[in-house]
Amino acid sequence: MTTAIAELKYQIYNRRLGLWLFMLSDSMVFLALLAARYYMQGTHRPPEVNQPLGLVLTSILLASSFFANRADASIAHGDRAAFLRHIGITIVLGVAFLILVVAVEWPEALHFAPPSTGYGTALFSLTGLHATHVLSGVIVLLFALLKGKRGGYTAEDHFGAEGSIIYWHFVDLVWVFIYPTLYLVG
């Protein structure tokens, strides 16, 4: 029994390490795009950038990270109902973020910074790549929600949920650098 527990912990550690290595390599793509923004445009920012929208998007992602953290703590304590509730709120916030980016930010940006301009290239590259990460984050959270509903996680073994949540925090972490780069600097 003791050997089985040690083996499980070893497996979880390896999965966690793999996830972090993936996120580290993924962040290099974002780093390249962030660097390209400053290389192409310096600190120039069009005055038409929608500041309130940037603040709302940032607030949504920060709030979603809080609820994701609550979901993580809940499943670690074996509270399945709270886990499902919190991960559900996280998914709703993620979808709201996506809708705002695609339906509000991009149509607005097309007018003052089309992709043919330097700033437009940076904006659509960064927010486009980030939006695909938000979408994939919502999908993996949905998988975690469905598995959680079926009782697939325990307090001792729930890396599927924890890994999905860590990935969601990574999506938030990337936005922490995209927000000032696109909305505030300049």
């Binding site: 912990k9 990270s65 925090h169």
Partner: peptide, 22 residues
């Protein structure tokens, strides 16, 4: 970023292989 990585993402668990992070 430091707050998110440390508190939300639990980066410290990477350095506790013997505990499995739990």
């Amino acid at each position: 970023a430091a707050l998110i990585v440390d508190y939300f993402m639990h980066v410290g668990k990477l350095f506790q292989p013997e505990s499995g992070g739990h």
